[in-house]
Amino acid sequence: MKFRTFASFVGPSVFLMLLFIAFPLVSVFTQSFQLTQPVMTTVEVETCTPGFLTQTCTTETKTVPKLTATGGVETTTTWVGFRSYQNVLQMDKVWSAVGAGRLGDILQIDFWKALRFTLTFTLITLPLVLIVGMGIALAVNNAAASLKGQIIFISLLPFIITPVIGALSIRWLFIGDGILTVALENLLERDIAMFAQGWTIEILMLFYRVWHVAPFAFVIFYAGLQTVNQDTLESAIIDGASRWERLRFVVIPHLMPLIIFISLIHLMDSYRVFEEIVGFTSQAHVISLQWLTYDFLQPDDSGNRAIGRASASAMLTMIGIVILLVPLLRRTWRDHRGSN
């Protein structure tokens, strides 16, 4: 292909990727080393509030931001090096916890608490999604032709639901005296509060994510199953291979690239777990890295946003994803080189 043709095809996509991915990334990277803060002044202010029945006026010194002539808040931006990262990671506390031999204390720091959950969540849902997805695909593949359409439609439903809505509906089934909690209470004849402790909420979240994402794996695997070489399967049957052996030695090796593809996508997606935290209002017990970034970005009760810490936490999240993906990417790279 001529370079001009190639460039005119690829150009728009490269431009959009620069605009929407590369530049924001550079900007976040820069901001993680900066601190923008309002210029504060101390003023003596008389404030009058209703009190009760009569007005009460108090004069006090207040620290308030300086306003510019145009009405905005005057801010200054300074380079602070790794201070935002330090504020997120709190390594001094980590080392002192390690030094004192109380490793559990590390999990009281927001970032490490979030990392613990994010990793558990990612690594537990991955095999479950693969197994459940493969299970449904095999079941549909072996189902009678007249039922296939209906089964596919029903299996895809969870994937169609908006994530937050799905999380909320599961929450409402279980929270307080939700119908499923009451049903469980009747079944087990004991009082159950699903939202009173962390581990039950985590189980609900894992269940929800597997339920939501398994159809994606199913669709991909089902497509892959259609391309399995029938001759190889038949010769395996003639050789006396059982159903399990055929799956183990013929089907799975054939689907391996797809398994890696789904794993890559799932790792990237679930490391950014967020909807579950919001949907299940689990902040008191369980938080994730993506939620932590969001929380830094939310204005606090004095109107400040911790942009520096949010940027640092976003960069750390990205680094985490890259580390998780390395083994899989290396494998794909090896296969790629091998096939050439």
């Binding site: 509030t49 009460t56 962390g198 902040q283 606090d300 009760d301």
Partner: peptide, 28 residues
């Protein structure tokens, strides 16, 4: 007292809201 309308109180309120739950879940 009336709830203080100050920047310090705003920051304190947010810090309390984020950190207190760990006491009630028994982590700290």
């Amino acid at each position: 007292l009336a709830y203080p309308s100050t920047t310090q109180m705003g920051l304190m309120h947010t810090a309390l809201g984020n950190e207190l739950p760990a006491f009630f879940t028994g982590e700290r």
